[in-house]
Amino acid sequence: MFVNMGIGLIMPITTLFIHEKLKQSLVVAGYVLMGFSIAMVLGNLLGGFLLDRWRVKGTHYLGGIIVIGSLAIIALYPIWPLYAFIVVFYGLGLGILNSAVNGYIAYLQKKDNAIFTNAYWLANVGMGVSTFLSGILFSIGIRAVFLSSMFLFIITIIMIIFYFKPIEQKRKTKKDSIGKIGRDEKSLVSLGIICLTVIIVWIGYEQWNSNISVLMLSKGISVQKYSFLFTISTLEIIIFQPLMRPLFKSSFKSEKKRVILGVLMFALSYLLILNATTYWRFILGITALSIGDILALTTLPALLNRYANDSNRASIQSVSSTAGSLGRSLGPLMGGYIISQYSYNILFIMIFSAHLILLPLIMSLKKSIGFDGERGK
């Protein structure tokens, strides 16, 4: 939750700060965010690799030190071009820390089946609170934003020092040099399907964060109403996720069913806004998206963890995080191109169709070796 709050405080005002305060163009701001995204992808992969092969707490500390150090420098010297370089460095540390936390959760899931769902719920609470506070802190001053975020990450590292417990990791041997996944082609295919699902879901999801705002403005719907859609979405996730949790058991079959239903709801969200001209249609669309979020995005990490063993849990989670980052990077670019060449309706139909294509692929997922070498149930 605190990691997400740290992200949520800074990212909403990054473009605004670069353009309005540092007097750089929106194109330059876009390049800075691209550099941040690439650095975070590298951090995700590095964090997963280090957690599996180095030290658990050491990996968290490395990411935390880079993040806190970067925020301290930005708070002291929020100037151009230093800001651009430090934001990229911040992305690297954030990727390492985020991947380490997700990897640690993957180990704990063996004892707590609901931990991914609980973590995702709290992450949404954190993001909702921080995005609300971001604008308030920015009006006080940019240093207030960076110092507040730095304070959150300091609390995070303190929690890791005192409350994160050691985990038993099975180190790789020569006999098992590439791990279970390398020996099981079906598992490798299943991992590919899950990562493809993450990419397509986020390509669609990013349309709500970017291109749909332009569509709503062209229909005479205000920026305030567009922003309020995400308040509605966050509230729906916070309220409905705990209510839906008892409806599904912790099993391979149940998790696969949740992802299928979630992908269907994601697909429906784009049909609901075809030819939309009124605000209530977009509310219906974001509601379907929120339900898809609750069903699929909370379940995909747990489903992915069923294809891991104790020598590669964090690495496999980091691959999924990288797939998500790829989808988020491609979404606005692909959406903008399709809209400019064709129309919004063509874009929504294409995204809807892509989600439908995912369904038979997800249905084809096969069980793999479960936790501690047992068959996944």
Score class of each variant (00 low, 15 high):
Gly35Trp: 02
Ile73Phe: 11
Leu46Tyr: 07
Met40Ser: 09
Asn312Glu: 10
Phe162Tyr: 15
Leu196Glu: 03
Lys170Val: 14
Ile351Ala: 03
Arg171Lys: 15
Ser222Ala: 12
Leu261Phe: 13
Pro81Asn: 13
Gly91Arg: 01
Val201Asp: 04
Leu133Thr: 09
Phe164Met: 14
Ser315Trp: 03
Leu137Cys: 10
His60Asp: 05
Arg143Asn: 15
Ile96Ser: 09
Pro78Phe: 10
Ile200Tyr: 03
Tyr226Pro: 06
Ser227His: 12
Gly69Glu: 11
Thr231Gly: 15
Ile86Asp: 07
Ile199Met: 13
Gly126Lys: 05
Gly262His: 09
Ile86Phe: 06
Ile339Gln: 03
Leu229Val: 00
Ser364Gly: 08
Trp80Pro: 00
Ile273Leu: 11
Pro360Lys: 10
Leu45Glu: 06
Pro332Gln: 06
Phe228Leu: 12
Arg328Ala: 13
Thr173Asn: 08
Gly376Thr: 14
Arg306Cys: 01
Tyr205Pro: 01
Asn113Glu: 15
Glu374Pro: 00
Ile161Met: 10
Ile260Ser: 06
Met216Gly: 08
Asp310Cys: 03
Asp372Tyr: 12
Phe49His: 15
Lys225His: 12
Thr131Pro: 02
Ile96Phe: 12
Phe352Lys: 00
Ser320Lys: 03
Thr298Tyr: 00
Thr298Ile: 07
Lys253Ala: 10
Leu264Ala: 10
Ala75Arg: 07
Ser222Cys: 07
Val263Tyr: 07
Arg313Asp: 00
Gly93Phe: 08
Ile349Gln: 06
Gly336Ser: 13
Thr173Leu: 08
Asn309Thr: 15
Gln109Asp: 06
Met265Ser: 14
Ala296Ser: 15
Ser320Arg: 00
Phe348Ala: 00
Arg53Glu: 14
Phe17Leu: 07
Ala75Pro: 02
Val214Lys: 11
Phe352Ser: 05
Val259Ala: 05
Pro242Phe: 05
Ala354Cys: 11
Ile273Asn: 03
Ile273Cys: 05
Lys165Asp: 08
Thr298Met: 04
Val259Leu: 06
Ile140Glu: 01
Leu333Pro: 05
Lys186Leu: 03
Ser25Glu: 09
Leu297Val: 13
Gly327Pro: 01
His60Thr: 06
Ser227Leu: 12
Ile7Tyr: 15
Thr131Tyr: 08
Gly6Leu: 08
Ser177Trp: 12
Asp176Trp: 07
Lys110Val: 14
Ile203Ala: 02
Asp293Tyr: 14
Gln207Lys: 02
Leu50Thr: 11
Ala119Val: 03
Pro166Ala: 05
Ile142His: 11
Lys253Ile: 02
Gln341Met: 04
Leu71Tyr: 15
Met334Cys: 12
Lys257His: 08
Tyr307Ser: 00
Arg258His: 01
Ser340Pro: 05
